[in-house]
């Protein structure tokens, strides 16, 4: 094991643990969408969650906020620091109190994430007032209307909106996509959550504003010493923003570990393919980018055993059995019978 890996190996008994997901399992109708997803995030830690569309990333994030559809059947446990109960199986009323206060979310699509018939400032203010009084941090002080307004403008200013007081009076359709995403971020940060979940927050934005919004997110999280789960399929973003990374495919975590290690020396064949497909340096002299064969099967149509075997060039009949997790703990390891990098070790 490399020195890098040993140094980054997460401590199991950390007192600063913010999120602990164990064996999360989600079924919807006939479909088994998430299988045995386990990971943890500590305070101030930024974890990336990567994978192609349809791999279960967004579903995982919704599970963390208790926003899965009513009829989803959920197993396992999701525990959050400061919340005395398991989010899996909690009542909607209890979940509502946790959402926006302890865990908040920035969504992918800023154009539709805001209510078109409500002023932006009111939507931010609402995030503050919902938890006012209940919030242990500030007591009931925030219920004061003037204070809420001041705080709203302050938040809009923090996310870098010019003329925040004017912006507060605007309707969403009067703002650009980047501006709206800042408003969504302001809403998410309003109650200083312990965990911020970002679901591809920059994908829908113009390239020119992506970096700026990304920077605002990281700064907002750092200022609060919050933990962050960052979902994306853009590996370069993960490399710059995150310390650890989880690779998902077919509703399972197939590899996890420090970004450095996973990106330098991927073990799972899926991770390897993902990296090769997005890394211009590995392009063959002929100029063709390597791709992963085939495409992600629709939910419910993944093979048994190793979920990736239907697209894997290294798959054998042994892969029809679910590969065991190789590694120290759920936060560091991989699930592959024919891992990459074995050639060098042999």
């Amino acid at each position: 094991m490399s020195a890098l890996a040993a140094q980054e190996s997460p401590t199991a008994s950390g007192t600063s643990r913010v999120l602990d997901v164990q064996g999360l399992d989600v079924r919807l109708g006939r479909f088994h969408l998430l299988h045995d997803v386990s990971f943890t995030i500590d305070r101030g830690e930024r974890v990336g969650l990567i994978g192609e569309s349809g791999s279960g990333k967004s579903l995982t994030s919704l599970a963390l906020l208790g926003l899965l559809p009513e009829d989803a059947r959920i197993g396992g446990s999701v525990r959050l620091a400061g919340v005395g109960y398991d989010l899996v199986g909690a009542r909607e009323r209890d979940l509502a109190q946790v959402r926006g206060r302890d865990v908040a979310m920035v969504f992918q699509e800023p154009m539709t994430a805001l209510n078109p018939t409500m002023r932006v400032g009111d939507q931010v203010a609402e995030a503050i007032t919902i938890h006012a009084g209940r919030s242990s941090r500030d007591g009931g002080a925030r219920t004061d209307r003037a204070a809420v307004r001041t705080r709203t403008v302050e938040l809009l200013d923090q996310v870098g909106l010019p003329n925040p007081a004017d912006c507060a009076r605007a309707y969403p359709h009067q703002l650009s996509g980047g501006q709206r995403q800042r408003v969504v971020l302001a809403i998410a940060l309003a109650n200083d959550p312990a965990l911020l979940v970002c679901d591809e927050p920059t994908t829908a934005l113009d390239v020119t504003v992506q970096a700026r919004v990304l920077d605002l997110i990281v700064r907002g999280v750092a200022a609060r010493d919050a933990a962050m789960l960052f979902i994306t399929h853009d590996l370069s973003v993960v490399a710059t923003v995150c310390e650890r990374v989880l690779v998902m495919y077919g509703g399972r975590v197939v590899e996890a570990g420090p970004v450095e290690e996973v990106f330098r020396r991927p073990r799972h064949r899926y991770t390897q393919g993902l990296l090769a497909a997005s890394d211009l340096d590995t392009a063959e002299p002929g100029g063709r980018l390597p791709t992963i064969r085939g495409s992600v099967p629709p939910a419910g149509a993944f093979p048994d055993g190793c979920v990736f075997r239907s697209r894997c060039d290294y798959a054998t009949s042994e892969c029809a059995v679910l590969p065991p997790w190789t590694g120290t703990d759920p936060g560091h390891g991989f699930a592959c019978i024919h891992p990459a990098g074995e050639e060098a070790a042999r």
Binding site: Q97, R99, A104, M105, F107, A113, H131
Partner: peptide, 9 residues
């Protein structure tokens, strides 16, 4: 969904 993520039931 945004409203629910804020903490509204």
């Amino acid at each position: 969904r945004t409203a629910r993520a804020k903490g509204l039931g």
